[in-house]
Design a protein around this nucleic acid. Structure first.
Lengths: 204, 204, 204, 204
DNA sequence: TTTTAAACGAGACGGTACGTCCTGTCTTATT
DNA sequence: AATAAGACAGGACGTACCGTCTCGTTTAAAA
């Protein structure tokens, strides 16, 4: 039951350095954005040598994924009493997160990088994207309990496909509205979007 | 009737250079992707001096926007006989476009850049994003003619809001599925998505 | 009796342009010095197109030779009554010329260029250097008339060699003192130098 | 007692890089001369990054001064038995040095640059010019010991002025003859020059 | 305790691309 | 045919980061 390499010899890595680096990364993202963020800059700001930084993260994109991932885990889905209210709530929380300068500048950038970097793509999915599917699952279970949605189909694969689809539709719409179309995501937009999602095109 | 600046003084800019630069940009995007694309590389490949390149485009991102914008204009919406078929058709065409290496690597990157560059954001919207709303408008008119959708509301602003919403939902879902979730967009996914869009969550 | 090419076809070259270019060259030399002087800069300053400039002078160094040559022709050798006074006079005039920013920065530069450019070397000699030997000849004739120097030897080649030698010694010493050793050339230095030149090392 | 900065922090500068750069500079001067010598060229030839080069020398002229300075230190004044022979000897050695392509192309160029750059002027004087005054001092002492020249005056300043003057006359004449008048400095010229220097104008 | 070895800060290293500047040539319309 | 204007291909500039390396120093477990 011993953990792997329980005590390596030599000086152990500094946990404080990790924290300082991630904090410095977020702070630098806020100040200069993704494209002008440099590893040297982060190292200096964190009071750390570049070697220390590279020992832990091999590239800017990996560092940024880890630095912003924790922000996405703060998303929650409190029970607002109805499926409509839950959807509107999560849409607004997600939009608020995307408004933060750290995430706004970083999310699209790491996704762009990931289109030509398989390892990064996996890291983004595992650290950021897939973890948020829990919100869809949770809202769905709750709506089923309320009788607002039919129960899961017998086929588990089908259930997973439906959850993935709903996740892509909600997350995709909010991201596209906020970052691509450059429009506001306010309660009015959230309401119109939810109406469309609940009732389909005819209801819009 | 004379156009503005009918004959400027000095040697006129070479239209051939413009074409060569945009072609070279697309070719380089295919070969090396966004992040390893350099202005020098493009200039050499186009057989053009760097000054000529910078005289027209001030930054890599602006150049890439113009280079890929034309690809998005190739999207069309042939009448497939029903709203369902039209939606499935446009989803698959859009996904096919996003699978091309030029667009896959470039679209997210310029959107990421645009989060911290107002001028670029406008350029992206005008050259790429907003132009595709024509597809939504056209499909909607056709569906209304078929009686598949109710007529436009009296309020023109409301009509515009609905079109924007539908556009964000369709484009956002396809982009998220293809580039973020890293999933395939095949006829099965298109069918499930269209069912959800037409009938709402309950239908999914 | 027609001169060569009495009337060429087409628009004749503008003499005003020549003057403007040479004036602009001298002015620019004063302001930015040799190494930051550019052909474009001169053209703009002279209100002339670059083509006009290159049609007349093929390189910066040729242009500068012509621009400063005229300044050297202003050197004169008024009769000051004795060989000693004539030498001190020409030393001080030459030093004053070398103190002007146009000549100070330009003379060494074109000589440096000329070490690897035969045509330029000839141009510098003909336009600047050799023309000043007249001062040595004149002073020598005058001193011979006064009985301060022996008459010319029978061998004309020997005479030429002596003149060249004296010229190199005087011009070389002044240039070295002013531009290389970075020392002042005042009446004290001129007197000491003249004493050495007249009486040899023992007299110094 | 501690030497200045006994151990600076970080990786120390490579002494091998310094040597490689200076060697490459001299080699490049021989091949392409001053005006076509580029920092990039030197860096590549030395197998060194441009940053390494700029970390040590801020400009081409400073680099070239250091690269050729060592050549001037090779000048010597062996005792040839008489003042006349010593002068003829040093004139010929100095002329031979100026004939070398590294020095011919570089010396005038850095002097030209130095006319508009105080720091460079100091560097040239300290690294190249003033160091050669030792030759004058040495020859003078030797001639005084032989009784060919009177002893130093009581006034030390006066001695220094005389040495400076003799240095400017000898060095100036040789440089002017070799590089400006573009004439040969052979034993005949050296003899005529020495006669003039020893006996004054009447002797020439 | 003393030894050992990895992590640490600092900063130099070879390299690549940047965006600007200048060169000398060319292509316009105008004089 | 010369002109003003300015675009053109080419290439050097000096700077900024990259990711690696080489120093001397610090830290904590192993001997």
């Amino acid at each position: 039951m011993a953990p792997s390499t329980p005590q390596r010899r030599g000086r152990p890595r500094s946990a404080a350095a990790d924290r300082a680096i991630l904090d410095a990364t977020r702070a630098a993202l806020v100040e200069v954005g993704w494209s002008r963020l440099t590893m040297s800059h982060v190292a200096i700001r964190a009071g750390v040598a570049k070697t220390t930084l590279y020992r832990r993260w091999g590239a800017k994109s990996e560092l940024v994924v880890d630095a912003v991932a924790v922000l996405f885990d703060e998303l929650e889905l409190p029970d607002r009493g109805s499926l409509r209210a839950d959807i509107e709530g999560v849409v607004l929380s997600f939009a608020a997160l995307l408004e933060r300068p750290e995430t706004k500048t970083a999310l699209m950038a790491v996704i762009a990088e990931s289109t030509s970097d398989e390892a990064l793509r996996v890291r983004v999915r595992e650290a950021i994207v897939d973890r948020q599917k829990r919100l869809v699952v949770e809202g769905r279970v709750r709506a089923q309990a309320r009788g607002e949605l039919p129960p899961d189909p017998a086929d588990g694969d089908e259930t997973r496909r439906v959850i993935d689809l709903i996740f892509d539709v909600i997350a995709g719409a909010v991201v596209h509205r906020a970052l691509v179309s450059d429009g506001v995501v306010d309660s009015g937009w959230a309401a119109r979007f939810t109406t469309l999602l609940l009732g389909g095109l005819g209801a819009a």
